[in-house]
């Protein structure tokens, strides 16, 4: 099971990095969120995948699942939720302001701008 999930993590990483390397801003945002999903999956896999009960008192000590990675993942999801949302809003505003979602064009405009100011 761990091997399969590891492969999935690898695929998610590859897709995420591919999306980040494209020029479109929206794809980059999607790429970052895919990457974070990959990392969360990785975090879950590192603590061993198994079915068991929650580590609460009075539930039997056998076969409990380590709760820490899940707490970490939840925290990380919350943070990434915030960042992705902010990134999206920012991309939208940048699109309104700069009239493009193409990173390449943004850069060429900035270098033109720099050339003018010199």
């Amino acid at each position: 099971m761990e091997v399969i999930v590891a492969v999935i993590v690898g695929i998610l990483f590859a897709v995420g990095i591919y999306l980040i390397l494209t020029q479109d801003l929206l794809r980059i945002v999607l790429g970052t969120s895919l990457l974070t999903h990959a990392v969360h999956l990785l975090l879950m896999t590192m603590a061993m995948l198994k079915t068991g009960s929650a580590p609460l008192l009075g539930r039997g000590a056998e076969d409990i699942v380590d709760p820490l990675p899940q707490a970490l993942i939840l925290t990380s999801i919350v943070i990434n939720f915030g960042i992705t949302a902010f990134f999206l809003v920012l991309s939208y505003r940048a699109y309104q302001k700069l009239d493009t979602t193409d990173m390449e064009r943004m850069r060429s405009e900035s270098s033109r701008h720099r050339g003018r100011s010199q």
Partner: peptide
């Protein structure tokens, strides 16, 4: 609050 602020902003 945060979620609705974001949704309303967009």
């Amino acid at each position: 609050g945060v979620t609705m602020t974001i949704l309303l902003t967009i």
